[in-house]
Design a protein around this nucleic acid. Structure first.
Length: 469
RNA sequence: GUCCCCAUCGUCUAGAGGCCUAGGACACCUCCCUUUCACGGAGGCGACCCGGGUUCGAAUCCCGGUGGGGACGCCA
């Protein structure tokens, strides 16, 4: 049997970190087994679904490089198919019309909660042999309910959590079509997973409780069409925020595209997400391809995992260091433009990226650190006071002259500084620090001779002149 | 409330009854490197939720407790 997995988000918001990991694992499972990965947009909640959200999900997947073999399929475009299946269930007696009003149901729920019972449909309109149903009220448009088995248990061997059993007595007859005729989530999923030949359903933990209902519907459907099979299920635990709390819209859940904006490389986010809840021995740093080759459901942790920005930073720093400067060029051009640096010299930009990328966690930090290569820095007052002391001024004057005559290479520049240091009986930092402050504005920078080599002779002399006045 | 799930360093995790004196990674601390800050290198701190049981032997298996999470929609 060919492996087919799917990622099935509902377009009610952006692609967040939890959804991204679910997609990543589904993607990897399909790749590992030479199967197909399908994207399906579950947009049956017309009131909450938006085209913007669809686009945001597509953008997020593209940024992460989670390519799908089929889709995106849209459930709203499959209405005809759902209606046919519902009709067949009605005909087979595995579904029925229910005329209970929303108000009636609400009252029932409250009553049950008050009695500390699990709120469930009371089966008023459920047909049974020998049972006499009430007369359908004329003013109520009926919903359609699935006739769930009442006895026995539903069990499956979850690929992550092991065997799970739920008694049918815990389940009630769920609504599969609303009063307006549109089908609901649990029903659409079942039809789609079946029609699309999904072999493994890999999804979030929060769907564990839907699984027995879906299995029951699949079984009812297989009574009608014997080719219909129940897929395997793998339920991934959720990702918690850095504080151990559940991620939600108002608490810590952000779009994966926010990570892009914040200066994270997709390689880093993928690598980080892969290691969140999954492991391959002691391996920590690996590519998406390596992940796909290694991936298996056996090594997924069943417990929830807390998001840790520090570790993401570490991975991001690794991937930035590893990147070729030219690969970062386009990105840095954009980020520098945001910082007011327009059309910088490309050779100079490449050289400064090469020098600076070794020391940053994010692409924004990189861009921040690059600015002074292209614009005169404003000098940090504390650093000026500490390092640009009156006694070094004459040495700087002397050095300026030497630099002016210097062959403009880091080696030669270093030599010129060294000569000035020796001649004046100083230690190297005594001159390097004032230079650093004068040229970069701060007391922290890469090797000052290398910075100077990139800045260029004219610019270095001009910046020195500015502090000597 | 009912049902379901989960439980190893602060965090992510290794761990399939003896390889465990519980390993790795991030973070933190110390030292080294050094031209400042980083990077890098070497060390260090630091955990099996509790209680029973099974067994010659339990982080690992079973039971109970506790704690955390999820679900209980004409949402997905």
């Amino acid at each position: 049997m060919t492996v087919r997995t799917r990622f099935a988000p509902s377009p009610t918001g952006f692609l967040h970190i939890g959804g991204a990991r679910t997609a990543l694992f589904s993607w990897a499972y399909a790749k590992k087994h030479g199967g197909e990965f399908i994207l399906r947009i579950e947009d049956t909640d017309v009131a909450r679904s938006t085209p913007e959200a669809v686009q945001a999900i597509l953008d997020g997947m593209q940024w992460l490089g989670l390519d799908y073999d089929q889709g995106p399929f849209y459930q709203m475009q499959r209405m005809d198919r759902y209606k046919i299946v519902i009709q067949s269930m009605l005909a087979a007696g595995s579904a029925y019309y229910c005329y209970s009003s929303k108000e009636e149901l609400e009252a029932l729920r409250e009553q049950q909660m008050a009695q500390k019972l699990k709120p469930r449909y009371d089966g008023k309109w459920r047909p049974e042999p020998g049972k006499v149903l009430p007369h359908p009220p004329a003013d109520i448009a009926p919903v359609i309910r699935f006739k769930n088995p009442q006895d026995g248990v539903v069990a499956w061997d979850d690929l992550v959590k092991g065997r799970i059993e739920i008694a049918n007595s815990e389940l009630d007859d769920l609504i599969i079509a609303r009063a307006d005729g549109t089908p609901t989530y649990n029903f659409c999923v079942v039809v789609d997973d079946s029609d699309m030949g999904i072999s493994q359903v890999i999804r979030g933990d929060d769907h564990v409780n839907n699984t027995p209902r879906q299995i029951n519907m699949l079984r009812a459907l297989s009574e009608i069409d014997s080719s219909i099979q129940v897929p395997q299920y793998a339920h991934l635990s959720m990702i918690l925020g850095g504080d151990g709390q559940k991620l939600s819209k108002r608490h810590g859940a952000v779009s994966v595209m926010q990570y892009h904006e914040d200066g994270y490389l997709p390689e880093a986010v993928i690598n980080y997400l892969a290691r969140l809840g999954w492991s391959h021995g002691d391996e920590e740093v690996f590519s998406k391809q390596q992940f796909a080759a290694w991936f298996d459901l056996d090594h997924i942790t069943p417990s929830a995992a807390q998001f840790n920005t520090e570790k993401l930073n570490w991975l991001n720093a690794h991937y930035i260091k590893q990147a070729e400067p030219t690969a970062l060029l386009a990105d840095q051009l954009q980020r520098l433009a945001l910082r007011g640096v327009l059309a910088p010299d490309t050779a100079k930009l490449s050289a400064s990226i090469a020098l600076y990328k070794e020391r940053v966690n994010t692409l924004n930090e990189l861009a921040d650190g690059l600015v002074y290569f292209f614009e005169k820095p404003s000098l940090d007052a504390a650093a000026v006071e500490k390092h640009l002391t009156p006694d070094v001024m004459p040495v700087l004057v002397e050095l300026s002259a030497a630099l002016n005559a210097c062959d403009w290479q880091a080696e030669a520049i270093h030599q010129a500084i060294n000569d000035a240091v020796t001649k004046n009986g100083l230690k190297f930092p005594k001159l390097a620090m004032p230079l650093r402050v004068a040229l970069t504005g701060t007391a922290q920078s890469p090797s000052i001779d290398q910075v100077m080599a990139i800045l260029g002779k004219a610019e270095v002399l001009a910046r020195l002149q500015a502090v000597l006045k």
